[in-house]
Every structure is written in structure tokens, then in C-alpha cells.
Amino acid sequence: MTEPGFIRLNVRALFGRSYPRVIGGTRELSWIFFETVLPILSIAAYVFIYKAFLPPNPDQTMLDKVNSLVGYVVIGGTMTAFWLNVLWSMASQLYWEKEVGNLQLYMMAPMSRMALLGGMAVGGMFMTSTRAVTTLVVGVFIFGVVITIGNPLLILAVFFVTLIALYGMGMMFASLYLLYGREAWNLSALMEEPIFLLSGFYFPVKALGQTVAIGASVIPATLGLDALRQLMFPVSGFGTQFYFFSPELELAVLCVLAAVFLVLAKLSLGYLETLAKREGKLTTRHQ
């Protein structure tokens, strides 16, 4: 048999690695409760607060504003699924694979390390998307959110580039976790809450002030959410001054972030692989 070329091999490898996630989601259905009902509950808490802003006989602008507020929360809640997936699942994946004994088989195979990380990311994205869409549909339906889709192409572009940047970050974390092992777990726990706040999952990030907002933009979810909200809710619930940059500029920044994270992921896994091969840490000792 002739050997497959570099591209063919890695496309197959990437698809192969994403397969357990893609198919796994359909085999264990308990996630429906945890990944859909729970986010809806946390969204509901914010929605009730925002709806309480409404005066007894609201006029149309007032209704539009509250619709935007509720919409922000639903979009934020939807994107939360991806963030949690990156933070908890992606990041600890390689560490976990090492414990099971998969990592050495992955590292021994001729596939590129980016196909391995990419496969993990694509699988995670796919699995989480089904959950995110459920949250979105349920949210829109239950809370009666009206979404305006003015520029669908731009919305899609922002959404996908945000995901790539977010999972690029996850790929980088995955490599670092392998190095720091269990200690990195605490880092995830540490990052979960502040980042919910900072990246404005439930309100526009700029409400926290310009400096914080710029700092928070390193996390791709921040800019992505800001852009998505601008594009989907033309009437701003908080007034336009709370928006960050224009969606186009935010998309450009997201592209740069995506590229940077992907390069960093490749470099850190490459570095880590060499280090682990030198120190004998690519496998646990009993394998």
C-alpha cells in the first residue's frame, strides 16, 4: 500500500480523534439535564432581574431594550457551554489521556500534534454545539427573545472565529496541563468565576470600565460575545456606549487571537513533548 501523504494522514487523524466526542454525545443522554436545564436556570435568574426593570405600562423602546438585555443573557448562557468545555474538558484532556494510556499511543503515531489537538477541539466543538443550540432554542422560546439577523455572514464569521480562538486557547491549556498535572486543576477552578464576570457572559463587558475590558479581551469569548450582541440586538439595552469596538474590528482582533493561540498551542505541545521525552513523563510509569 502506498503511504498516505501528509495532508491525507492528518485529515484522517483529526477526524478519527474527534469521533469519540461526536458519537459519544449521542450515547450518554444524561447531559441533556446537566448541560441544558442547568444553564437555563442560571439564565432565568438574570432574566427575571432584567424583566423587573420594566415599568407597569412599557412603551416599545422600553420593550426593545429589555428584549436586548434578555437576549444578551441567552447568548451569554449559550456561549458559556463552550467556555466550560474548553476550561474543563479540553484543558485536562491530554492529562487524562496520559493516565489512561492513550497519550503514548497518540504520540507514537505519525500524525501531526496539531491533528491530535485539532481533533480534540473539533470533537468538543461539535458536542458542545448541540448543547449550545439546545440552550439557545429553549432560551429564545421560553423567554420570548426576538433576535434580529441583519448580517448573517458576519454573525457566522464572528461565531466561528470566536470558537477557533477559544479552542485554540483550550489546545494551549491542554499542553500546559500536561506539564503541571493536577496542580493545573486549581487554575481552572480559579479562572471559572472571574472570567464569567470579566468576559461579560451575562452583561456587556465594558460596564466594568475600559481597562478591565481591554484586559479581558485576551479571552476570545469577550470580544466574540460583544460582537454577536451588537449584531443580533441593534437596540442596545445598555445604550451603545457599552459596546466595545465595531463588530468588524472585533472580528479582525479575534482572527489575530485565533492565530496566536494556535501557534502557541503548537509550540507548547512541541516543547512539552521534548521535555517529557527527556524526563520520561510522556507515560505513567506502569505502562
Binding site: 500500500m1 503511504e3 498516505p4 491525507r8 494522514l9 492528518n10 484522517r12 487523524a13 477526524f15 478519527g16 480523534r17 469521533y19 469519540p20 458519537i23 459519544g24 450515547r27 450518554e28 489512561v100 494510556g101 492513550n102 499511543l105 497518540y106 503515531a109 505519525p110 500524525m111 491533528a115 491530535l116 505502562q287
Partner: peptide, 27 residues
Amino acid sequence: ETSGYGLLTTRENIWMFSQFYGIPSKV
């Protein structure tokens, strides 16, 4: 060895590992 994923079937697990070597799926 305890490699592979418990969620996948025997055949799927082997197939997955073969993909890391770029073996055409049908083969």
C-alpha cells in the same frame, strides 16, 4: 493496556487508532 474509549465499540476503537496512521477508512 487500558487504552481507548469505553464509550466506543471494539471496532470503533480500533478504527480510531488506525486513522492516526492515515489508513483509508474502508481498508
